[in-house]
Simulated scan of single mutants.
Amino acid sequence: MARRTPNKFLRSLVAERVSKRWAKAARGAKEADLSVLRRERNYARTLRQHLNELIYVADSRLALPMIGSTTFRKPQGSDWAWRPQLWRGPLPVPGMSSVQNKSQLGDEVTLFHDCVFSELTLRQLRNTREADLAPFGMRMDVFKFDGSFLSLVIDLPPEAVQGLKRRHLLRMDTIVEMEKPLEIFARLNIRHGPNTEQIVRELPLHEEEIMVEFDLAYTKLNEKRVEKAWLDLIFEGPDMNQVTLRDLTFSRRPRAEL
């Protein structure tokens, strides 16, 4: 049996006594004198603030996966793969309420809607499940929705269109959780010169692996004039729902030659 050092023993003893002290105070709260109860409440609030801070930092450091992780499954032959910053690392502003049209969460994600009164919230949350590969997720709460459209726009980085050809397949993978069923569509937009190619796919939310692929062979893409690309996630019937995107990744690969 390993022996504890004096310092570890004293810390353990102090922690045990503090725990017993507050357990006793909690048990006696119903009968305690009001002046004593008021003092104990103030002490408890101060202690709770420190404990919450410790728990928050510990969860962030100890939870899986590690912050900054870019690990995810990519199709064989992929020549580009990417996870947006919102799902990869902590944002300076992790959330917002009464989200207005064209509000940004980070540098790459923008929410669009036409609600007169916004009852939407967006926030980044820490993924702690062992099954999650993304360090962070995004949660959207929709209460009363009086608009006609709601979409989340993800700007793809310049690397996504460097060397982009019509023989490429562009793939999006995601993990979605919902309070109640709804339809989500993914629309890929690629600007080339004065024109913009668009491909729309419905997310197969009933399947275990939620993935869509965009085959550029069916577009009129001018390979020499490709400028940028972005993806719209369009939510149909989002009223009174909570949608969590645990992960969102992109990859591309050239189609096998026939």
Score class of each variant (00 low, 15 high):
G68N: 08
R39V: 10
M96W: 01
L37I: 11
L62P: 06
L105R: 06
V93L: 05
G89D: 02
G95L: 00
D79G: 13
L156N: 01
I67N: 03
S103H: 00
K74Y: 08
L170M: 13
L86V: 09
L248P: 05
L169W: 06
P65L: 10
L233D: 07
L188M: 10
E213C: 10
L156W: 00
R253H: 15
R139I: 01
P94E: 07
L120R: 02
N127A: 08
M178T: 10
K102W: 02
G28M: 10
R253W: 13
G163Q: 04
T5H: 08
T128Q: 12
R187H: 12
G237Q: 00
Q76A: 14
K8P: 10
L105C: 04
L47R: 14
V142C: 11
T174A: 06
V99L: 00
R191K: 14
R27C: 14
S148R: 09
D215R: 14
L91T: 10
F9W: 09
K224V: 10
E257G: 06
R171Q: 05
E177A: 05
A217R: 14
R255G: 10
L182F: 06
V99T: 03
I67H: 03
L258I: 07
V116H: 03
V153L: 07
V99N: 02
R48F: 04
D239R: 09
K24T: 09
K224N: 02
D232N: 14
L216F: 11
T128E: 09
R21S: 13
I210D: 07
I199Y: 12
F250R: 00
T244L: 13
W230C: 01
V153H: 07
A26R: 08
S12F: 11
N195K: 13
P158I: 04
L164A: 00
S118I: 00
D141S: 04
R126V: 15
V161F: 11
R4Q: 14
Q85Y: 08
F136A: 01
V109E: 01
G77D: 08
G106I: 07
L62R: 11
H50N: 12
A134W: 00
L150G: 00
R129W: 01
A15V: 05
